[in-house]
């Protein structure tokens, strides 16, 4: 079981209180009627599936109910950090370098 830090509750909580909600930072096109079908399909369906660090949305569904983002390693499930929805995507490479330094 993972312990996930909820950035709204500011506590580590057990994974069972959360739901994963897919890749983070997928921006809806500002003007949907000006994108073609291909771009719209990409927005709806095309997702990264990296082997490694991955920014994804989670929801504290059995807690405060809020969506937030987490940077999780898709192989070993380590979570580098969690941050509130709306905050910019962190520079993962730089964070890893700083951690090793």
């Amino acid at each position: 079981m993972l312990n996930i830090r909820c950035p709204y509750c500011e506590e580590d909580r057990p994974e069972i209180e959360f739901r994963n909600a897919g890749e983070a930072h997928i921006a809806r096109p500002d003007e949907p009627d000006r994108v073609d079908d291909r771009q719209w399909a990409d927005f709806l369906y095309t997702r990264d599936n990296p082997k490694g660090w991955h920014a994804e949305r989670w929801r504290h569904v059995h807690g405060c109910g809020r969506f937030f983002n987490a940077v999780r390693h898709s192989v070993d499930d380590r979570i580098l950090l969690t941050y509130k929805a709306g905050e910019p995507k962190p520079d993962i490479e730089r964070m890893l370098r700083e951690r090793e330094a």
């Binding site: 209180e17 059995h62 807690g63 109910g65």
Partner: peptide, 10 residues
């Protein structure tokens, strides 16, 4: 106070 789970219920 916290919302959480007990067994399968919230």
């Amino acid at each position: 106070v916290s919302r959480t789970l007990y067994a399968k219920v919230e």
